[in-house]
Design a binder for these strands. Structure first.
Ligand code: MN
Ligand code: MN
Ligand code: ZN
Ligand code: ZN
Lengths: 162, 162
DNA sequence: TTCCTAAATAAGAATAAATACTATTTAAGA
DNA sequence: TCTTAAATAGTATTTATTCTTATTTAGGAA
């Protein structure tokens, strides 16, 4: 869903406010990187973001793009798509099923639901292309991670895990 | 969902059959790599698979693991988890929404559905951990990709795209 | 069974995404 | 304006994945 110019401006205002609340500096780079992600209905990768912002901020470094994106993720101001971890994971279960994914350690478990298998796809989606399959992704904290998670509630973007 | 020993054996038999039908050789490495993915309820990455199979096939190379996994993906005998592309993609839309993803070019579009926002999570899933959010992933072919896709219906694992 | 050959593999080099390091710059509060 | 911790640029490094090439092998033919 695209955001109109006004909506973008509103979002930028909110963004600055949230930065202040989080006690992090509202740098030019941060604002522009967020703007780049927020302004498009697409879901750009780091390099696309880098290229887009670089036009406006020629001194920008790729390192800053990554650092900024991960910190915005930690602050809950953006999300990542698909897998939490960057490595590709494989699945030999070809029967219709769904996944529970731990946001902290990446643990992924299958589950089954007739109801989820037969969700009715909105007409607006069918207009985007040919639908082949539908899967539900439930995200949260697995039991062992939620145990560790007392006090230090830091679900930063994952490095290691099962 | 774990597979009992018998179930695994049945799956291995089916697997060999499918290899034969596809006209590709049933090498020791292929069988063991598939077995490794099929036998666990986990969703291992290439390195995990390599380590597991390496115990049984000490000459195995990591390259073979990747090559085999991608070809099994192309044959439709396994799937990958999460994003089709390996690069991480970012999303500044923090409102509750869902995604349509083109399996060929990776194009990803938001869509909205009250129904999908309020899916009731099965009890079995709640037993796995604390549920934080639920998202529906609709996969298929976007309009422009489905146009190209006449005749050569080869949705092999993606390299480039928008 | 033995032979043949295209297909598959091992090993290691190469590439590309992501991260770490360090000297320099800057936001924002005093 | 001054100060300083936080953030950045630029570069080096790491790590996941892919490529290259010489060697091996599955499986069909003889
Ligand atoms: Mn699965
Ligand atoms: Mn989205
Ligand atoms: Zn976990
Ligand atoms: Zn497409």
């Amino acid at each position: 869903m695209e955001f109109e110019p006004e909506a973008l401006q509103t979002r930028m205002k909110h963004f600055k406010e949230q930065l202040r609340r989080a006690g992090v500096k509202a740098t030019h780079q941060r604002l522009e990187i967020f703007r780049e992600v927020a302004k498009s209905g697409d879901h750009p990768d780091a390099e696309g973001i880098y290229k887009g912002v670089h036009k406006r901020v020629p001194t920008l470094s790729l390192d800053t793009v990554y650092r900024t994106l991960w910190s915005l993720l930690d602050l809950g101001l953006i999300t990542t798509l698909g897998a939490t971890r960057r490595r590709v994971r494989f699945d030999a279960n070809m029967s219709s099923h769904h996944h529970f994914i731990c946001a902290k350690c990446g643990m992924t478990r299958d589950f089954y639901s007739k109801k989820f298998d037969t969700l009715e796809i909105p007409a607006a989606v069918k207009a985007l292309g040919i639908v082949e399959k539908t899967q539900v992704e439930v995200r949260g904290l697995c039991i062992s991670c939620s145990k560790e998670d007392n006090s230090k509630s830091n679900v930063s973007h994952i490095k290691e895990g099962k």
